[in-house]
Design a binder for these strands. Structure first.
Lengths: 209, 209
DNA sequence: GTGCCGTTCTGACATTTGTCATGGGGAGTG
DNA sequence: CACTCCCCATGACAAATGTCAGAACGGCAC
């Protein structure tokens, strides 16, 4: 389809905190005639700075990076470089992440289980202005559906995520203990969990926190 | 140091569930004259089968894989192929994993933040019969120290990891509820946590579960 | 404007949990 | 052989948590 010699190559930014993966990826993508890696980054902020400096056509971002995760970088990038398409790659594809990513204007979302060959094709797809979402991740996201929790319930559940007692959560959220317990109770029943700790785990699995 | 042409190349097994990483890694390591990738695997059991079939000199294993993790594969491998050196690569280097790995006879332990160049050197080091442990991970492991928990306490804490109530844990462990609570109580106080859920989190961070 | 929903609180109650004292049995060490 | 440590258990008490009813306020929709 895309003839390599006929048009200028696609300029890529690669961001992943794992040097091993980033370097290897750069090497593999460089084998494709129509792709060229113009910048690499190991952290969220670094990715942002590199993008501003090198103006890539497509940014390939890892979902989990120190500093700022891929989705946050994508959000900033959309404001700064509207022409730059964002493609997220991830190891652990939780359903909620996909939704957040799409809301942030991300054009592609793939697990790291794809081959480099396939990734190159997807980069071209995204560069051409189309979207690409891994079918399996998409199915998971659809079956998991939207979070049934209200904003407040989600917030309180997040405060509960590290196992803090109610008193501490109440203090951090500036609420009374009774209110906190009510929110947790409703969150637990909405998620069908046995207690708030299991609820946290469930919400995590579905990507709702 | 190691002259490439003077001796037969080091035969490698690569195991990682992320196709992207595995393929890229294989390509990069293939650039080294004295290294040759003879087998690849995406899961623990597959890695084991591949190792038996191809008898590699060095097995490069991801710590987290479906089926059986890198350390478990290493344990089986030591029994089956004593001549095969095991090198573990990991994204999230929790202190306890390193200890477990060394006990399983693993010869090298490195984070994925190293470069491919460096990895190649480490593979040679390991193949030569030496050990290599990433200095930073080693420092973490030393500062985290040994688990203060007894075998039973650890086991019960693991059952508690998904937020199950005591009754369920007692049933799964075939213990009385009182006993379970006693174990949890002592685990919590040993770890200096506020409750068992925070204790689980702490033990996870230190790699003791 | 009436009703619905989310937020916030209080108070009361049942259940779960954490803690402690105490006891017996087995394994290992001095 | 006494001592210590881990395993397993029971019972009792205190504290934390889960659940429910009720009630006030603001926003949004019809």
């Amino acid at each position: 389809m895309t003839s390599a010699a006929s048009r200028p190559p696609v300029r890529l930014l690669l961001a992943d905190d794992e040097h091993l993966i980033r370097g290897a990826l750069a090497a593999l993508l460089a084998l494709e005639d129509d792709l060229v890696v113009v910048a690499e980054a190991a952290t969220g902020p670094e990715a942002l700075a590199m993008a501003r400096a090198h103006m890539p056509d497509v940014a390939v971002l890892d979902l989990q990076m120190p500093g700022a995760d891929g989705v946050r970088v994508a959000t900033s990038l959309r404001a700064d470089l509207p022409g730059c398409k964002v493609l997220i790659v991830t190891s652990h594809g939780r359903p909620g992440h996909l939704k957040r990513a799409l809301e942030a204007g991300v054009r592609g979302f793939v697990p790291k289980t794809v081959s480099a060959q396939r990734l190159a094709e997807i980069i071209r797809t995204v560069h051409a202005g189309n979207r690409y979402v891994d079918p399996e991740l998409a199915a998971d996201a659809i079956s998991a559906g939207d979070s049934p929790l209200t904003e407040r319930e989600t917030e309180i559940l997040e405060y509960a995520a590290d196992g803090s007692p109610v008193a501490e959560i109440a203090e951090r959220a500036a609420l009374s203990q009774g209110t906190v317990r009510n929110y947790l109770s409703s969150a637990v029943s909405k998620l069908g969990a046995e207690n708030r700790h299991a609820a946290v785990r469930l919400a995590r699995e579905r990507g709702w926190v």
